[in-house]
Design a protein around this nucleic acid. Structure first.
Lengths: 355, 355
DNA sequence: CCTGCGTCTGGGAGCGCTCTCATAGCAACT
DNA sequence: AGTTGCTATGAGAGCGCTCCCAGACGCAGG
């Protein structure tokens, strides 16, 4: 009995194998699978039949070795999710927006997500090491003055951020919401309802979203001719627990309204207010930011600013793919519209103080 | 003036370039960057100096073309997140567990996440097309009788599921929680508190988690000698809104306890109960499943079953990488422990009915 | 008949790595 | 001096694709 090696039946065929089976050359098969012109209909049909029968798929490594394209984009989220946005659905919604685009345009999405343990710089080193693996990057929650940004610019890796950059702003493509304008609008709404002692619990100020919302708050007070009191601005780190704690410190100052930089912080603040025996909105109005699903279900239901998070990911991904494919090479900055969602936590129905 | 082409200064160097600069051969540089033996310390040092100075990183496509390894794993989540788990943090936590492992072991994570529009089969076709791009897969929320599973098995692509498979169970490696046992334990707890008319709002029954929890519920009633009433088992689809609706239909049957297949459903049920003027837990006890962050903040705080979601992803990823690296080739099944978290929604403090 | 010009096909080079094999150098034994 | 064994290095082939170029073929016009 001849010793015949039993080869793995799952062995992947290559172009040459398909060419042989179809009685054509490697080049012709390549033309067919890349849907190029200059192939006769008869040949094309014959090749396709073999390709489908054998379940052939081109080897992506070989392909991208020569094309220098991978059809993969990376999404970078440095902080472990719990730290940054707790139980809100921000990153899932953002990611959903991204994959809706990459799915439709036949790209794959590589997730660069920080671990609780590992530090950001390690993650960034790995990303730079692997930069040839990706055609471009979407950056979320990244400090713009980080060396990653400069390295990416130097290596000419296409990227889009989903926050306003704090550096190189004119050279970086980004998509965000007009935080300043939205915050101003929200605070003016409080003013219009008759509130005068409006405090704010801010998100982390090294995050552009958090920072810009504070700027918007100040601008509204200024335009309303109200006194700016720095002790009425407290950092809540985007966290429920922190907001709960700082709200208690805020109570002795007797604010009549709280503008929170996120819904989770608004809910934390509301809990502290209610535990102190005060009523929302009668004693203190609370307004949030984000419009998380939970906001509609709290008691009282939270008045907040709705952000198009899904769209943020969607637009960023679309912009990135356009850059990669050379459809739109110039730098673009997109500000998505926000919407004030009026519910109960500011007492829209009862107007506590006459204007 | 000589016309001199300005070449991109971001051109990636290759092994040969580094070799020339270090005065050694391609092979030697390869040995150094792969940390192989048989390189003299002097040479290694000299090469490393050049590598670092030039910021050289090997081309992943070229490398995996010959090694047939990519150091990339895929995570497959077919349904768009909103459909399946609403605002709970299930998938983020699962993903966090996965990336904690891949980060530590220097793998990259490719996200195959369904779009709302695109159907699952399209996604699965793309995955199969790209199977050479990944060393293995983690499958979440996939119907085990799907053709994807059989194709993966035929192509000998290593994979691990994070639910109990409904088919080929003995041939598939998976990691999940002991849903049956956990549900039995939870329902027995209700029995011990004196509840006798215990209804259940189940998750989707084509999901193994949802199905097994129902099985556990029935088993507990049987063991307690209680009557099994099929009209007391209603599908809540894992959704807050659906649970809210079906709970209203359940009220006329006068249950004294609800075992919900998820926390979100428990909260939906609680809302319906309270809106009907009944009290939780005095009139109806409610017990959930998942221990989402929100469960601790509801009123009353929800008694529920804590699942190690992060660990589920963590263990699955670790198992997959072991399979890929040939450290552990045999099929393994892991059941992670659960924990009953007693809060207020079952009235632990007040024991409404004497035993 | 040749030439020109489209359409279609095949062969060869080369992308940047790894891996096998050959070989040089050197020390320690016969 | 020859042999052995180990360390250290280099050369060559080849992974599976794309892309460039050469050439075959058919058909028009001179």
């Amino acid at each position: 009995m001849k010793s015949e090696k039993t080869r793995s039946n799952s062995k992947n065929l290559n172009l040459e194998d398909i060419a042989r089976k179809a009685g054509v050359s490697r080049s012709t098969v390549s033309r067919v699978i890349n849907n190029e012109t200059y192939v006769s209909p008869r040949t094309r049909e014959r090749v396709m039949a073999v390709v489908e029968k054998e379940g052939y798929a081109p080897n992506p490594a070989a392909r991208s070795l020569v094309t220098r394209r991978t059809r993969i984009i990376g999404v970078v989220i440095p902080t472990s999710i719990q730290v940054m946005f707790e139980d809100s659905a921000y990153f899932p919604a953002l990611l959903q927006g991204v994959v809706d685009v990459t799915n439709a345009r036949d790209y794959a999405t590589l997730l660069w997500w920080g671990s609780s343990e590992a530090d950001e710089q390690t993650l960034y080193s790995r990303i730079m090491q692997q930069n040839q693996l990706m055609d471009g990057l979407i950056l979320a929650s990244i400090r713009t003055n980080d060396s990653l940004i400069t390295r990416l610019m130097r290596m000419k890796v296409p990227f889009v951020t989903v926050e306003r950059p704090t550096q190189f702003e004119s050279k970086i493509s980004y998509v965000t919401v007009d935080n300043v304008q939205a915050a101003t609008h929200a605070v003016k709404y409080l003013v219009k309802l008759g509130r005068r002692r409006i405090a704010t619990i801010t998100g982390s100020l090294n995050n552009p979203d958090g920072y810009d919302r504070l700027i918007g708050y100040r601008q509204a007070l200024r335009e309303a001719g109200l006194y700016l009191d720095e002790t009425m601005e407290i950092d809540g780190e985007f966290r429920y627990q922190t907001a709960y704690t700082v709200m208690k410190e805020l109570l002795p100052k007797q604010p009549d309204a709280i503008f929170a930089g996120s819904d989770m912080m608004a809910l934390g603040a509301m809990k502290a207010i209610q535990e102190a025996g005060l009523r929302v909105p009668e004693d203190i109005a609370v307004i949030g930011f984000d419009d998380v699903p939970l906001a509609a279900q709290s008691d009282p239901a939270l008045t907040t600013v709705n952000l198009p998070v899904h769209e943020r990911g969607y637009v960023a991904a679309a912009m990135l793919l356009d850059m990669i494919e050379g459809k739109n090479t110039e730098v673009r900055q997109v500000l998505l519209p926000t919407e004030l969602i009026v519910r109960e936590s500011c007492g829209t129905h009862l107007q506590p103080v006459a204007k």
